[in-house]
């Protein structure tokens, strides 16, 4: 059994990402009695974030502060996290399946010669085994997988394992650890904020996605307005990206991102099998399309047949009125 589980936290603009709290909940699913040790890396003070991890269920937190950890690099974070792992000798490691999680965890697993189960959406314990469920073929199928030897090491997909309730009465130690970080082989010269105005597509609770039916880059404007009133993110089908209506970073599908929001609104998307692979496991799907025969209606919970340029602004107004 995993007696001690490390959870690697991740922040954006010095605020912990929700998936960090979900990873803590995941660690508790692996073993409810395990000691959960949070790890945080950064260049600024990490005390507040460490406290948040404890409120959300971590028993204690180790922080590594170093100016070389200001932005994520696999070299820098790899050295910092491996050093903590060496001290702690954990039985398990859990992290979010985010850009950083995907980049960092294989390096650590390789160094430790450990197995790694990426992108888990569910965890259950069956006797002595911890069984992870993960999508394959972009969600066209799922597999149940176990680590057969050594460290229980997994990344969890955002939005799938519910975080525990925040409890300010929880307390725990925060330990600052000094790690010598040798020269980084990668220099990040600049970060251009492009698509992510606010809500990240893979973590969004609501996704408004447009397809070829949106007709132009301008045509996406009403979708952005709808996403904004819903506090969601905008995505797109491959057709819309290929036609240059939007950036490839918005693409949802078998190539592109796989999303599982609470609400997915498909606008002017016909529903090719490759697109469905990327979104059909969303909890509630709404389709808006002028073609009543469009395949998207076969997976939608609710559908409206008609002109999206008429329907989407009406929907935005209606939801605005509701939220007012």
């Amino acid at each position: 059994m995993s007696e001690k589980i490390i959870v690697i936290g991740e922040s954006r603009d010095n605020v912990l990402r929700n998936v960090t709290f979900e990873a803590i909940a995941a660690a508790k699913k692996v073993n409810g009695d395990a000691e959960v040790v949070g790890v945080l890396c950064g260049a600024d003070d990490l005390g507040t974030q460490a406290q948040e991890m404890i409120y959300y269920g971590a028993d204690r937190v180790v922080t590594v502060k170093n100016e070389k950890l200001a932005t994520y690099t696999s070299d820098g974070y790899g050295q910092a996290v491996l050093s903590v792992i060496e001290d702690e000798n954990p039985d398990g490691i859990i992290m979010g399946h985010t850009a950083i999680g995907k980049d960092l965890t294989p390096k650590i697993a390789s160094k430790l010669e450990a197995g790694l189960i990426s992108d888990a959406v569910d965890i259950e314990v069956d006797g002595d085994e911890v069984v992870f469920t993960r999508p394959i073929y972009s969600g066209k199928a799922f597999e149940k997988k176990v680590i057969s030897e050594g460290l229980v090491f997994a990344t969890v997909r955002p939005n799938n394992i519910a975080a525990l309730d925040r409890d300010e009465s929880r307390t725990g130690d925060v330990q600052d650890k000094t790690v010598e970080i040798s020269d980084l082989r990668t220099v990040i010269k600049e970060v251009l904020r492009k698509a992510t105005d606010g809500v990240d597509l893979s973590e969004a609770k609501v996704v408004v996605a447009g397809g070829r039916g949106v007709k132009s880059a301008d045509g996406f404007k009403p979708l952005y307005e709808l996403a904004e009133v819903l506090g969601g993110a905008v995505g797109a089908s491959r057709g819309a990206c290929d036609a240059d209506y939007c950036d490839y970073s918005l693409q949802i599908g078998q190539t592109g991102k796989v999303v599982t929001p609470d609400l997915y609104i498909a606008v002017g998307i016909s529903g090719a099998i490759q697109h469905l692979a990327g979104m059909s496991n969303s909890k509630v799907i709404v389709a808006i399309n002028k073609d009543p025969e469009a395949n998207i209606f076969n997976v939608a919970d609710y559908g409206i047949v008609g002109d999206l340029f008429e329907i989407v602004p009406l929907l935005t107004e209606e939801i605005k009125a509701l939220k007012a």
Partner: peptide, 26 residues
């Protein structure tokens, strides 16, 4: 020798076609 093992593979539950609404757009 692999470090992980797949126990089984399954398909997600078939999604039932939902409701297409009717009437005036508004």
């Amino acid at each position: 020798e692999p470090k992980t093992k797949t126990l089984n593979v399954f398909l997600p539950p078939e999604k039932e076609a939902g409701r297409v609404l009717e009437g005036e757009i508004e």
